[in-house]
């Protein structure tokens, strides 16, 4: 990211209120989800969200490693978010860093809150999120992918978890920031919710927003999440279509 002089800042909103990629302030980037893309994992999903490409795989319930993390009354959710070295403009040094540790933690905790972990004591549910191409909003994309992968694995859960970020660009609130907007905008607020109960399971904020703006941003985020939720469900229905005579996929 680095610092840039004010003259280098791209024009995030044009005279007609359109964004760099032509979207309005309340529009999502195109989102495509496919469930069950990997053979070896218990469950999997691939998400293309704008220019983001994210793969999620789920294993388990299985034995806990390392053993001392085992819990006698519930399953532990072990989540790993990782960015491929080729996912960003300049080669990213591979492996865990401060940022991916944080994201692994918040995604794991968000998903643990919807999983029925008490049904699998002394086990571990492994969630692996690989970002193949990043263009802002990968923690949301990862969470969206991981929750579809968990449903594909058949692990009991109370609901799917859609997630989206709302940011502030050129003084206006905008849904689902892309890279330029994230880099040069004023604020970025990713959030995830459980649609059935309306419970928030992830809410972070970078930069500044006023109290009122945050309120509006959350309303926008909830609306965005509802749209994403429908796409997640469609992906799962597509995977398990009940076509009459074999072969046919999408209905």
């Amino acid at each position: 990211m680095g610092s840039v002089g004010a003259k280098d800042v791209p024009e995030l909103l044009d005279a007609h209120g359109k964004r760099i990629d032509g979207r309005g302030l309340h529009d999502l980037r195109p989102l495509k989800i496919e469930a069950g893309v990997l053979q070896r994992a218990t469950g999997s999903a691939f998400v293309e969200w704008g220019e983001n490409k994210v793969m999620a795989a789920v294993y388990g319930p299985r034995e806990v490693h390392p053993r001392h993390m085992q819990q006698n009354t519930k399953a532990v959710v072990q989540c790993r978010y990782n960015m491929a070295s080729f996912s960003v403009d300049e080669r990213k040094r591979p492996g865990l860093d401060r940022r991916s540790q944080e994201i692994s933690k918040v995604i794991g905790e968000a998903l643990e809150s919807v999983l029925f972990v008490e049904e699998f004591p002394k086990t571990s549910i492994g969630i692996y999120i690989e970002v193949l191409q990043a263009n802002a909003g990968t923690r949301c994309a990862g969470l969206v992918a991981a929750s579809v992968a968990l449903a594909d694995a058949g692990i009991p859960m109370s609901d799917l978890v859609p997630a989206v970020a709302v940011g502030k660009i050129a003084g206006k609130l905008a849904l689902d920031l892309r890279k330029e907007e994230d880099n040069y905008g004023e604020s970025d607020v990713p959030m995830a919710l459980v649609p059935r109960s309306g419970r928030l399971v992830l809410l972070q904020m970078e930069g500044h927003m006023t109290r009122d703006e945050l309120k509006t941003a959350m309303d926008m985020g909830v609306k965005g999440c509802e749209k994403i939720y429908e796409i997640q469900k469609a992906a799962l229905r597509n995977r398990y279509s009940l076509g009459g005579n074999g072969g046919g996929e999408a209905q």
């Binding site: 029925f116 449903a151 594909d152 058949g154 692990i155 009991p156 859960m157 109370s158 609901d159 059935r196 109960s197 799962l236 398990y240």
Partner: peptide, 15 residues
């Protein structure tokens, strides 16, 4: 494959 919450029954798995 189901669970009860606030008096209603929901699915907990795809099926």
């Amino acid at each position: 494959g189901t669970y009860r919450a606030d008096g209603r029954i929901y699915a907990s798995v795809a099926g």
